Amino acid sequence: MSQTGDTRGTAPVLLRLSNVEVVYDKVFLAIKGVSLEIREGDMVALLGANGAGKSTTLKSVSGLLAPERGEVTRGHIEFAGRDLGTMPAPQRVHLGIAHVLEGRRVFGHLTPEENLIAAYRGRDQRRYLQLRDMVYGYFPRLVERAKSKAGYLSGGEQQMLAIGRALMTEPKLLMLDEPSLGLSPLFVKEIFGIIRTINEKERMSVLLVEQNAVAALNVVQHAYVVDQGRIVMEGSAALLRQNPDIQEFYLGGSHAVDYHNVKHYRRRKRWLA
Rank of each mutant, 00 (worst) to 15 (best):
residue 135 V to Q: 13
residue 40 E to Q: 09
residue 124 D to C: 14
residue 136 Y to T: 08
residue 127 R to A: 15
residue 18 S to W: 00
residue 162 A to C: 06
residue 145 R to L: 07
residue 146 A to L: 04
residue 198 I to H: 01
residue 111 T to K: 06
residue 239 L to N: 08
residue 95 L to E: 10
residue 193 G to S: 09
residue 20 V to A: 07
residue 76 H to W: 05
residue 55 S to H: 10
residue 122 G to S: 01
residue 198 I to T: 00
residue 217 L to P: 01
residue 157 E to T: 06
residue 188 V to F: 04
residue 187 F to W: 10
residue 193 G to D: 01
residue 213 A to D: 03
residue 225 V to N: 02
residue 51 G to F: 13
residue 79 F to V: 02
residue 247 Q to I: 05
residue 135 V to P: 12
residue 241 R to F: 00
residue 119 A to M: 12
residue 41 G to E: 09
residue 24 Y to R: 06
residue 50 N to H: 10
residue 153 L to R: 10
residue 101 L to D: 04
residue 125 Q to I: 14
residue 199 N to R: 01
residue 161 L to E: 10
residue 197 T to Q: 07
residue 178 E to F: 13
residue 13 V to I: 15
residue 55 S to A: 14
residue 172 K to C: 03
residue 154 S to M: 14
residue 207 L to C: 15
residue 156 G to W: 05
residue 74 R to K: 13
residue 61 V to K: 07
residue 114 E to I: 08
residue 114 E to S: 09
residue 204 M to Y: 06
residue 2 S to M: 05
residue 68 E to C: 08
residue 14 L to Y: 12
residue 60 S to N: 12
residue 113 E to I: 09
residue 266 R to N: 14
residue 193 G to I: 01
residue 251 L to F: 04
residue 215 A to C: 08
residue 145 R to A: 12
residue 41 G to P: 07
residue 203 R to L: 01
residue 151 G to M: 07
residue 25 D to L: 11
residue 17 L to M: 06
residue 138 Y to G: 05
residue 178 E to R: 15
residue 268 R to T: 14
residue 168 M to N: 01
residue 201 K to I: 02
residue 208 L to E: 09
residue 69 R to K: 01
residue 60 S to M: 07
residue 69 R to T: 00
residue 254 S to W: 04
residue 12 P to Q: 15
residue 65 L to D: 15
residue 206 V to Y: 06
residue 36 L to G: 07
residue 165 R to D: 09
residue 65 L to G: 11
residue 205 S to I: 08
residue 267 R to E: 15
residue 83 D to F: 11
residue 225 V to E: 06
residue 57 T to Y: 04
residue 172 K to S: 06
residue 181 L to R: 02
residue 169 T to V: 15
residue 163 I to C: 05
residue 233 M to D: 02
residue 149 K to D: 08
residue 133 D to N: 15
residue 125 Q to Y: 11
residue 22 V to K: 15
residue 60 S to V: 03
residue 102 E to H: 11
residue 237 A to G: 10
residue 52 A to W: 06
residue 89 A to W: 04
residue 25 D to M: 09
residue 201 K to M: 02
residue 120 Y to H: 03
residue 235 G to M: 10
residue 171 P to D: 10
residue 181 L to A: 13
residue 271 W to P: 14
residue 264 H to F: 00
residue 137 G to H: 11
residue 144 E to C: 09
residue 130 Q to E: 13
residue 216 A to F: 04
residue 20 V to G: 07
residue 66 A to C: 00
residue 264 H to T: 01
residue 231 I to P: 03
residue 258 D to P: 05
